[in-house]
């Protein structure tokens, strides 16, 4: 699991995290990208980030922290197709299962 906490419009390193997700996926790993804090900013349909859109096309599983979304007035209907709101419990589920998890 890759936890993306930074806004890609602000921090270019975030796009490197997206690239890592794709590369891990290409290596046969099941990858979940969990967006939290300002990391949720590209999740809106209207947000224009080509690298992020590419993740969805490549089938990376993406979850958006419901708490962070609410805080920033992001409604579920505004999310890009293929990504969903999720509870932060999913991070703990992932850790408890022993899934390697990186905070970015």
């Amino acid at each position: 699991m890759l936890i993306s906490s930074r806004d890609p419009f602000e921090c270019r390193e975030t796009e490197n995290l997206y690239r890592l997700a794709v590369n891990l996926n290409n290596n046969g790993h099941a990858v979940t990208l969990f967006l939290v804090q300002n990391g949720v900013m590209p999740a809106r349909k209207s947000a224009a980030n080509r690298k992020f859109a590419g993740l969805i096309r490549q089938g990376i599983h993406i979850e958006v922290d419901d708490f962070s979304a609410k805080e920033r007035s992001i409604m579920e209907k505004e999310l890009k197709k293929g990504i969903n709101l999720a509870s932060i419990e999913n991070i703990i589920n992932s850790l408890a299962k022993g899934t390697k998890t990186i905070w970015h």
Partner: peptide, 15 residues
């Protein structure tokens, strides 16, 4: 500027 522009939106509802 930056991500602080989100501050102007209505319906921000931090739990």
């Amino acid at each position: 500027c930056g991500n602080a522009v989100n501050y102007i939106l209505v319906d921000q509802a931090p739990p």
